[in-house]
């Protein structure tokens, strides 16, 4: 056995697994049902699920066509655009939140106009949470779908064209069904990212219970006042992550094996 590889590998594994085990060990199992049914917890959970789902919907509606544009067309600046699309992936989420404030805030470039034209303002609203989550999560979807599109056989699209299908019909009836597994995987990943979003949300949307206080924000807040509640909320998020991992095991975990 090459110990120089095995020892760090085991340490690395412990480093990844132990904190999660600690979470399970320290969980207040006896008071768990009661804690979970607390209105504050339920409210945060509901808000998280709703905003993450809406953010995923936004990402699907905008991100799938964007992925198609990047994968199937050629225009000057396409590579630059592709790089820009992935920026939120590496950007610290807090910076994303600040950037969103500067553009969509009350005094922001677009926000100012939104306010004067429609009397409508995004920051510190539930819609603001959706915007922050979508901003951070969309690159995951775009990259997954673009990868699926590049891997798909374009000859099927050509076959559809010779049968009289317009480009949009080709996309709807051939391309999309062929890359459906990729879109689904991207959507799940995007949803998980949106669910865990913290930095951009708290910066752009604030921390108002029932309106913008999602699970991660609630965990952070509870940690100072009620550590047990923080553990319970964390357990819920951990459970969600595990469920997603199981759902996608064939696509990623399996593919790597």
């Amino acid at each position: 056995m090459p110990w120089l590889l095995v020892v760090p590998a085991v340490l690395g594994m412990a480093f990844l697994v132990l904190p999660l085990a600690g979470l399970l060990v320290r969980a207040p199992w006896s008071t768990l049902p009661w804690r979970l049914s607390e209105p504050q917890v339920l409210e945060a959970l509901r808000l998280s699920l709703v905003t993450a789902s809406m953010a995923t919907a936004v990402c699907l509606v905008l991100g799938v066509p964007l992925a198609w544009l990047l994968a199937r067309t050629d225009f000057p600046g396409r590579r630059l655009l592709r790089a820009l699309v992935t920026v939120p992936l590496v950007l610290p989420p807090v910076v994303g939140g600040v950037a969103l404030l500067l553009v969509l805030g009350r005094r922001g470039l677009i926000g100012q106009w939104l306010e004067s034209a429609f009397g409508f303002s995004l920051p510190f609203t539930t819609a603001g949470v959706v915007v922050a989550e979508a901003f951070v999560a969309m690159p995951f979807l775009v990259i997954a779908v673009e990868g699926a599109l590049r891997a798909a056989d374009v000859r099927y699209e050509e076959a559809a064209a010779t049968l009289g299908a317009s480009r949009f019909t080709v996309f709807r009836r051939v391309t999309l069904p062929l890359v459906a597994p990729g879109v689904l995987a991207g959507a799940v990943l995007c949803w998980a990212r949106a669910l865990g979003e913290f930095g951009a949300t708290i910066t752009f949307a604030g921390n108002f219970p029932g309106r913008t206080q999602t699970m991660p924000l609630a965990v952070y807040l509870a940690l100072e006042t009620e550590p047990e509640a923080a553990i319970v909320l964390s357990l819920v998020l951990l459970a969600v992550s595990v469920v997603i991992l199981v759902a996608l095991r064939d696509r990623w975990v399996g593919a790597a094996a």
Partner: peptide, 10 residues
């Protein structure tokens, strides 16, 4: 391609 009266067996 989509407007040509052509059928293709690939």
């Amino acid at each position: 391609a989509e407007r040509r009266p052509v059928g293709v067996v690939f």
